[in-house]
Design a protein around this nucleic acid. Structure first.
Lengths: 201, 201
DNA sequence: GTCTATACCTCGATAGAC
DNA sequence: GTCTATCGAGGTATAGAC
């Protein structure tokens, strides 16, 4: 019992460290040593608990995959559904920026590890795709290419991040830092709905 | 003379191979051996011609940086400027998808190599930022947060790519493959201008 | 379960023949 | 200028003490 608890703590410490480092330096750019140092545990424990660096990666997504990915949007109200999806995704991105970051890297480089993670992302994007189709059918959304529109929406959703790289360039305006979750969601929804030519009633 | 020509060929072969591999597997995930194999040259030549793997990376961006980044948009006509920028970027992305890919990876993971490449990207985004501001001043663009809007636009611009990862999911509709450059540019412009609530005259 | 010490491999870079 | 052979550093994974 006590042993189990200790093990869980260590596993969690490793996962947290790996999440941070993978996002920062990529999977290949991160060493097991760095992970264990960051976690404050011995080098051997990654292999002991996970069976290798690669399995840490997979465990990361199993542990942190959000529940909303399994949610089924009704498609009866495409606008409402899209707003829900934007909100769900924005919240996940705010809660787990490193995971989004890492995922985006892996997608970009078509990593071999993607095979196992693909279903998770696909679930979300298939829903987005269905919502966009439904919205076009009801005449509420206007676009020509479904494929490209999914790209645009995903791009807008995923790229909105607090990267110091950007902030260097972009901080120097209205100084509206510390905006809350709801504000960010509104900005995102406004832009995307505009891109879909949805007219607010 | 002949020696120079040969050297140039080898350097170019290495750059091409590195471009492809870096985009595919990331900088850290690519080995010098892989680069040389892909280029069909001996292992030692990366060090001989470039002085190390890291310098191959920098040479890549010096060699392939597009001229339009140095273009100055007039800002008298924000809509026209934005359309030009979208067009310029889309063309670059179609011509050099690997470079965009690699750049995005590096940005995501805030790589130490970014310091030397940062100015290139900043040049473009600063222009985008200025155009968005100008368009808001003339009342043609409508948005609340400049910072987030830049994010959205960049996201839409950068994420539109022919990735087999996406196509798996998205190929199965109108079967409008092989659309040309102009069509892609129109889709992108339509979405972004919509997001900015620009009303076509 | 956790640690240290180490085996074994592959990395980037270079020396030296051609 | 280009090659092969090799060095030293640093990678992952594991054996064995505690």
């Amino acid at each position: 019992m006590k042993a189990d608890t200790q093990a869980k703590d260590v596993k969690l410490k490793i996962l947290d460290a790996a999440k941070k480092l993978f996002a920062q330096k990529g999977f290949e750019g991160t060493t097991v040593r760095q992970i264990c140092d960051e976690a404050g545990v011995a080098l051997a424990l990654v292999s002991y608990h996970f069976g290798g660096k690669e399995n840490v990666f997979y465990a990361l997504f199993e542990a942190f995959t959000p529940e909303f990915l399994h949610k089924d949007y009704a498609l009866a109200e495409p606008v409402e559904d899209l707003l829900s999806l934007i909100r769900d995704f924005a919240r996940f991105r705010l809660a787990e920026p490193e995971l989004i970051n890492l995922l985006q890297q892996e997608i970009m480089m078509q990593s071999p590890r993607l095979d196992k993670v693909q279903p998770i992302v696909f679930a979300l994007w298939k829903q987005l795709r269905a919502i966009l189709q439904a919205g076009k059918a009801t005449g509420q959304f206007e676009y020509e290419s479904l494929k490209h529109t999914v790209h645009f929406v995903v791009g807008a959703l995923i790229f909105t991040r607090n990267s110091s790289f950007f902030d260097q360039l972009l901080q120097e305006d209205g100084v509206q830092t510390n905006e809350d979750e709801e504000t960010l969601i509104r900005y995102t929804s406004d832009f995307i709905l505009g891109g879909l030519r949805y007219e607010k009633k």
